[in-house]
Design a protein around this nucleic acid. Sequence first.
RNA 1: CGGAGCGUAGUAUAGUGGUAGUACGAGUGGUUUGGGACCAUUUAGUCCGAGUUCGAUUCUCGGCGCUCCGACCA
Length: 500
Amino acid sequence: MAKKITSREENYSQWYLDVIEAAQLADSSPVRGCMIIRPHGYAIWENIQKELDRMFKETGVKNAYFPLFIPKSFLEKEAKHAEGFAKEVAIVTHHRLKLGENGKLIPDAPLEEPLIVRPTSETIMYDTFSRWIQSYRDLPLLINQWCNVVRWELRTRPFLRTMEFLWQEGHTVHATKKEADEETLAMLEIYRKFTEEYLAVPVAVGYKTESEKFAGADYTTCIEAMMQDTKALQAGTSHMLGQNFAKSFEVKFLDEKGESQYAWQTSWGLSTRIIGALIMAHSDDKGLVLPPKIAPIQTVIVPIWGEKEEERNNIFEAADKIAEELKKIGLSVEMDKRDARPGAKFFEWEKKGVPVRIEIGPKDLEANSIIAVRRDTGEKETVAMADAEKRIPELLEAIQKNLFEKALEFRKENTHAVNSWEEFVSHIPEAKRGEAEDAKTGRGGFLLAHWCGKAECEAEIKKRTKATIRCVPFDQPGEEGKCVLCGGASKKRVIFAKAY
RNA sequence: CGGAGCGUAGUAUAGUGGUAGUACGAGUGGUUUGGGACCAUUUAGUCCGAGUUCGAUUCUCGGCGCUCCGACCA
């Protein structure tokens, strides 16, 4: 029997920290809520970067880098943006330390203007963009930046909400509103495609409500995923900024008639939070389950040998040959020749989420075959050595497909159309200390319900159930209905869910 | 910053007002190797401080630490 790592029911976040061997620094630490990512977790991030970067570049986006520090005056320029981020920024006020009498270092030399550690880079980038852009010939400007940002959150959760996180933020500038609208949706589509096709995590796409949109945007679009505990996770956002920042930062251009115009802008981001989504969407009690397209190791080969040295050498030779063949067709292969028992190795690679394990032992060598084991289903099959380079990619493809379908099926099972308040609250999970007022014993999930569009109703529902509007989905058909709370008129259902 | 709970070996856990156990891990020697090996052996622990007591790991108070929950959050 496999040893369970830690029960998901008891403590979800501890469980996935265990499987990925990552850590969040404790609350008592001065850098509480920051995270440490070990090599195996970081390798996943590198693969995410690689694929996203490729997709961005196909649309003409170029990478650049801007300063970590933002002058306070920059953040003040766009009023809504300033208001939205003021509560959660780290501020640099000094630029030197002096040695005190007791050996303690004391901040010295205050800065004339405090610097904000970027919570996002709109302001510092657009100040520069205003100088880069002169005429319509300079547009569109399509810039992306891979960096870290800091948001001083009161309560953190590993990967899902950390004080410092890694992300990419894209910023584009356009001559027309239409072009910017299209860009906003095009980038969201890249996020959807990436998340579904590479991470095998199905997502709902739609608009954020006014109360949930990005501070300073005209509107925000998002992808929302469902985790295995039925809670929702915002996995990526794409914002139409309109001319809000253009007006604050003087991002102007001369059009074909020689007239000065404010530009239209978008920004879009996806962070290390997506690793949390990946872990929580697929993993089981044996550990991580990684979709083949993003797994740092796609196949691990575990040779099994007896006591005879000659036999061992023969097995190693055959294993090396298989590894070479698989590497030649582009797979990432790990060879595990360590002197340990096979069972111990199996468990270790399962915990790390490697999609396919290959076993080669004396019996297999004799039969000129190998054993291939799928991580998602645990199924074992015998494959002729000559067929390995054909069969292993097939298995990887099947795993990728199966993971997505399983997650999609789970989401379907936990999505409910509800038509009354009684029905709505019947799906809200049982109340714990200090939780939702109207909670019953439901399983949660996505609730498709009518909503009148008023922020007061949205807030009241949140207060009573802890469920928020995750998005106003693009693909919901128009349908006359009544707001689930106040009975006001509604033309479309929205997705309510408890969120991370 | 509030509310609750918990502090026993590297980790996970028992137990007791009088000698602190077990498992895993780690070290050594040997036998092993197709699902977390076995035998022998070694290793290491009651968060800190004060009080009650002949005696405190246990009871009381204070501190510190950790976890969970809440406020905050695109």
